[in-house]
Design a protein around this nucleic acid. Structure first.
Lengths: 330, 330
DNA sequence: ATGAAAGCGCTAACAG
DNA sequence: CTGTTAGCGCTTTCAT
């Protein structure tokens, strides 16, 4: 049951290990004839290279490490898991595997162990902290690294959803359908993504000749009471559309409106800049911008592997989105 | 920036590589004195063994592989992600790391690559198929393997939630609070877990001197219409409690009841045998049995590592649960 | 109790 | 174009 080695092939074919190695890797000059011969034999005998040996020899693990949030919030977790699936497929296609570790606050410990042990050639960070120690550690030690989501740090490669574009397009589509006075309910104003969504909203208004009304902008809608008040204010001011920056805010907005017997979409439209499966299940279903975690992850993996292979990565386009219009807007 | 090796230690201390290796691993006869000396030096100089080299020498990777479902259902995904976090912590504590790959149907390909490449010493399967090819492959090749969830296959170690116990206790608690005529709405009757939940329900009724009423048992409640009819039937028959086998059924049940102006818990109680964060957010919040994915994962990891280390694992107790009584039951 | 030497399977100069 | 020769860092006989 011993699996076949490069040496077995060499013996069987009466050539040297080196030649076999070259034939298989395609590096160095080698005749087509022997290359074919070797590859054929390898394929027939189902040769599998021993990654440990290769790793030891060329100081490469052919693993990338992914740091997952040990979060507990269901939709965030699920989104990250979809990213993960994308990362895995992107990685495996290039002959790499994925080593996973969990975030334990803004610490470098796990990462350090993995990297120092030589268990991974690069790292994907699923989420970053303000003043992230891990990023510091990785850049100092010259370890290739890609961040998912917007990174505030200069010089760090990040793969992100097109939050500006998505928010702009959703806003624009609603304006085209007759919205004149949209109100915006945002999440934490410390988050980068909040600023991006605001920017998209803002530019859609401008481009469509609408004034931005500061009185209809509400940020940090974490608390239930705060959101209720904001909605009341917006409706009193004659808002005809409630734009929510994420699915959570959107769902709560819907509940509040229902409780107040505000008709949706009859009286006002409701839409979200961030989709999640719950929004399809509400009554009425809420229109939202949908991002695809899986392709985000896949692109992160591909970019990282390019970096590991020493291929320069120039600017990375944002990941796309899809506008899903549902019953909450007309 | 070169990290220190076993040879460096040997040279510095004027002893041989072998001795250092023995001092560090604790294998073989060695004097306390030199052992201490070596360990002290290693610690001071922050020695990190090169896992590749060790792996190559002793045909061990110190990795375990986890196969994740590439599912898309949000709460299932989130639950699995919590398991994953548990797996990671259980694994890292024992000096192992986690390699992750995604399921692509009932195939062995990815697994085979990982195992044949010698990238992992054992496998955790997050979900199994009827007639699972991966299990066949793993057992045939003598690769240690642990399954999360109930495994139908004889001889395969599985780590599972105590579905019977949880369902029984929830049912019993409700009976103690006055329920006399509970109806049960189940998921797919082909799933093992459905049978387990039914068993728990059944035994709670028996133990509390209640007759089981076949007319109040409804399985395969996938379709909306089917569930509506079932609920109508149950209510007409005088059911005073609607027990749902999972969070999805429970949420839909709640909606249907609201639409029919059935008061909860005034007229009937509603509870679920499987909790998820959405159940806390419904109005009224739904009582449910809560399982802890993280400790499930941790136990799976620990069990697998024992198997890898050749420690026999005898019978594994089920993972516990917690009954969360909320507003939907009185 | 310690050391010398021979691998584990592969890659990478350096010759030819 | 191909082979020879050293390693990569660690473990493991087998001597001493």
């Amino acid at each position: 049951m011993h699996t076949i080695t490069i040496e077995d092939i060499a013996e069987a074919l009466g050539i040297s290990k080196t030649t076999v190695s070259r034939a298989l890797s395609g590096k160095g000059r080698i005749s087509e004839a022997t290359k074919e011969k070797v590859r054929k034999y390898a394929a027939e005998h189902d040769y599998q290279p021993n990654v440990m040996a290769r790793g030891l020899a060329q100081r490469r693990t052919y693993n990338i490490a992914v740091v997952t949030p040990d979060d507990n919030e269901t939709t965030a977790l699920a989104f990250f898991h979809r990213c993960l699936v994308g990362i895995i497929s992107g990685t495996e296609e290039h002959g790499y595997d994925v080593l996973i570790t969990a975030e334990r606050g803004n610490r470098v410990n796990e990462l350090e162990r993995i990297v120092r042990n030589g268990k991974a050639d690069g790292v994907i960070l699923a989420r970053t902290f303000i003043d992230d120690k891990r990023i510091g550690y990785l850049t100092e030690n010259n370890i290739p690294c890609v961040v998912i989501g917007s990174s505030q740090v200069e010089g760090v490669v990040s793969i992100d959803n097109d939050n500006v574009g998505g928010s702009r397009e959703m806003t624009e589509r609603l304006i085209k359908r007759g919205v004149k006075k949209p109100a915006l309910f945002g999440g934490s104003s410390e988050h980068f993504v909040t600023a991006q969504r605001l920017e998209g909203f803002d530019s859609a208004l401008r481009e469509n000749g609408l004034e931005i009304d500061e009185d209809l902008l509400f940020m940090d809608m974490h608390d239930k009471k705060v959101l209720e008040d904001a909605i009341a204010t917006a409706l009193a001011a004659g808002a005809d559309c409630l734009l929510c920056m994420d699915d959570d805010i959107a769902e709560r907005t819907l509940k509040i409106c229902k409780a107040k017997d505000v008709l949706i979409p009859g009286q006002v439209s409701v839409a979200s800049f961030y989709d999640s499966p719950v929004l399809e299940q509400t009554a009425p279903a809420i229109s939202a911008v949908r991002y695809d975690g899986q392709s985000l992850g896949r692109k992160a993996a591909e970019t990282l592997i390019k970096m590991i292979d020493g291929v320069g990565v120039s600017d990375i386009p944002m990941e796309g989105f899809e506008i899903r219009l549902r019953e909450s807007t007309r």
